Simulated scan of single mutants.
Amino acid sequence: MGLLLEHEGKQIFQKLGIPLLPGKVARDLSEAEQAAKELGYPVVVKGQILHGGRGKAGLIKVVKNEDELKEVTPTILAGTIKNMKVQCLLIEKAAKIINELYISAMFDTFAREIIFIMSTEGGVDIESVAAKTPEKVQKKRFPIDYPLKTEEAAKLAEALGFKGDELNQLTDILMKIWTGLHTLDLQLIEINPLAVLEGGKIIALDSKVIIDDNAIFRHPLYQEFMEKRIPDDPLEEKAKNYGVAFVRLDGDIGIIGNGAGLVMGTTDLIQEFGGKPANFLDVGGGASTERVLNALSIVKEVGETGEPIDVLLVNIFGGITRCDHVAEAVVEVRDKLGLKMPFVVRLVGTKQKEGMTILEKAGMNAFTEMEAAVKKAVEIANAKK
């Protein structure tokens, strides 16, 4: 999965015309000093790392002068979260914020839809908002090939309570997000927060962008992003060698699925039901014993090197792949690796009835409906807290 750093995502935002604060990338103290001098104090120093929770980890700091910059920059550059390293810094001009929103859009390739998720509660974990105040989170689905009209985007903005010029600004941003998903091989755009500044201007304060790994060859800019990466999580390198897409997250529900859209939809549903995904892992086409072994060994290491995995959710849409073969592979590999956590497996496809029987005999929770499987996984994880 091609998760981008904040400053990389913002380069894509710039191409799309999504408003941003002035900012510059810095890779050492000297470059940070020069960037701050050009932008003018106060500035925000933001560690660039492929993980959430930067603020809580002390990797985002507002500095008012050069002395403060010299104090915080070395610490942020040396920062880590869950074995991941800060790659560089983004120095941005500070601004007075009046309001913060949450906006995201993603492809659900399984349902062949684009999902917009929006909330008036930005700057916080959207899963927490969904769990505590679900009425503050709005979702809207559109067919992938649907020609979204400006007036429809305006209705989404109106639903968040916007009027006048701010309504027009937000509508424009939503249309540009739609364009980005369709023209730049993006799978997810998340802006948290999207900020309303003093004076009414709306800008993207943060970016979370996922690009399609299979389309990197079409985009020289994406290739440049990947070439500049500092290797941090050894599991990502291992997954790359196995030919699977993997990103470590910070939850307790391990995830394996086939298809990036299906896995992203699974992580989203876990969060909606009050759970926290431990990883993103897409095994790609097929689910042979070897591929299942590689995938489960990675998730096992996630639990051994980070937060413990309380339950493992396997979500397989079989297609022409026989579900009984998938089920046999999952059971065989679980026993081979000595995995003790509960398994929840969702299977759909050829020979799914036979596959379900194999899983149930092995003591696994087996489902054909994705929502039911996710609810069960969250229930198991929450019961262990």
Rank of each mutant, 00 (worst) to 15 (best):
L5M: 01
G17M: 00
I18M: 11
G40C: 02
Y41L: 01
Y41C: 02
P42A: 14
G47D: 04
H51R: 03
K64Q: 09
L69A: 12
L69V: 06
K70M: 14
I81V: 11
K82A: 08
A94E: 01
K96C: 08
N99G: 07
E121V: 01
V124K: 13
S128E: 14
S128I: 15
K139F: 04
D145Y: 13
L148W: 08
K149C: 06
K149I: 05
T150E: 14
T150M: 13
E151R: 15
A154I: 09
K155R: 05
L160G: 09
L160N: 09
G161H: 11
F162S: 06
Q169W: 10
H182E: 12
Q187A: 15
E190N: 15
I191V: 06
P193S: 06
A204I: 05
S207G: 01
I210F: 05
D213K: 05
A215M: 12
I216V: 13
H219P: 09
H219F: 12
Y222V: 09
E224C: 00
P231L: 15
D232R: 12
L235C: 07
V247W: 08
G251M: 11
G259C: 10
T266I: 04
L269Q: 14
I270A: 10
E272H: 14
F273Q: 13
G284E: 09
T289C: 12
E290D: 15
N294L: 03
A295E: 04
T305A: 07
P308G: 02
I309V: 12
F317G: 06
T321P: 08
V331G: 04
V345C: 07
T350Y: 03
E354F: 02
T357Y: 02
A362G: 01
M364F: 12
M364V: 04
E371D: 01
A373V: 08
I380W: 02
K384H: 14
K384E: 03
